[in-house]
Structure formats: C-alpha cells, structure tokens
C-alpha cells in the first residue's frame, strides 16, 4: 500500500491542530483501503493529557464498529495507523494492545517515542510492524513551528509531546 496520500491526510489534521494551539500531530486509521478515523491532538481542549491523535482515532474506530455491527477485535488487526510523529510510549502501548496491523509515522519522537525511548514490544510482549521516516521533515517543521510559539494554554508546563 502506498501511504503517501494517507500521510497527507494526517498532515491536514496536524495543521488543523496547530491552528487551534494544539501540538501539531495528526493521524488517520486506514481500514481496507479507506480512512475510517482521523484526528489530531486535543490535550488543551479537553484538559486531558492522554488525548493524543491516536486516541481520538481509537474512539472513532469503536464508533465505526458500533455503527457497522463489527467487533473491534476483528477490525483493529486490519488497521494501518498513519501518524505524522512517532507514537509516544502511551499510544504505542495502546496500539500494540489493540494489535493493529502496522504503524507508519513521519518524524521520530526523541522525548516520548515508543520506539526511540522505550522498547514497547519488549514490555508489552507483542510486536507490531513500525516504520518511520515518511515525510519526516514536513512533520518536524510543523513541530518546530509550534514550539517557536510555545503552547499557549499550558499554564505550568511545556506541551505534552
């Protein structure tokens, strides 16, 4: 499967996040060739530090399953996760637990990366195919643009990514 076009859709989400002052990370979940979930960071909007793009998408997949009468444990293993930044340890652990088919990301996440910082497969005892580097520069540029302006709604801490 060619993921470039899906990555571009993930970038649409990331830019939307940037425009509302969220950390610009975007994500789409691809199921049988179609995007069935799309999302970006919503940490500031929800005051919940776990609302990363991947979690927004996980919730949408569950909705998709309910509407379509599908079992989520059948759907997740067929999902390709396309995300602009390497999933953090939390998201990577979740995606491994859900046994998604694969994870394709843009730039690495030196601070929280579920591959760069911690060996998630070793801890959760399950391995998902993870591939980074697709449009990495573009993803990094977006992050840089964000950190230049600082996170406007975090009163006490730098943003969560």
């Amino acid at each position: 499967m060619i993921f470039d076009k899906f990555m571009q859709e993930a970038f649409v989400e990331a830019r939307r996040a940037l425009s509302v002052g969220e950390v610009p990370v975007g994500c789409v979940f691809v199921y049988e060739g179609n995007v069935i979930a799309r999302g970006a960071n919503e940490v500031n909007a929800t005051k919940n530090a776990t609302r990363h793009a991947e979690f927004i998408c996980i919730d949408q997949v569950l909705e998709f399953c309910t509407v379509g009468g599908l079992k989520s444990e059948d759907v997740f293993p067929k999902i390709s996760v396309v995300v602009t930044v390497e999933p953090c340890i939390m998201c990577s652990a979740a995606l491994h637990d859900l046994k998604v088919k694969e994870i394709i990301y843009g730039c690495a996440n030196d601070r929280f990366g579920g591959k760069t910082v911690v060996d998630v497969p070793q801890v959760v005892d399950y391995t998902v195919k993870v591939e980074g580097g697709l449009c990495a520069d573009e993803a990094m540029d977006l992050l840089k643009e964000f950190y230049k302006g600082e996170n406007p709604s975090a009163p006490v801490a730098k943003s969560k990514r």
Partner: peptide, 13 residues
C-alpha cells in the same frame, strides 16, 4: 498500571 496507563500518568504529571 500497564505501560499505556503508566505513561498516561507521566503525561498527566
């Protein structure tokens, strides 16, 4: 907590 939740608590400070 599992790894996902342990990291959620890091993010949550």
């Amino acid at each position: 907590p599992c790894l996902m939740c342990s990291m959620a608590l890091v993010h949550s400070r």
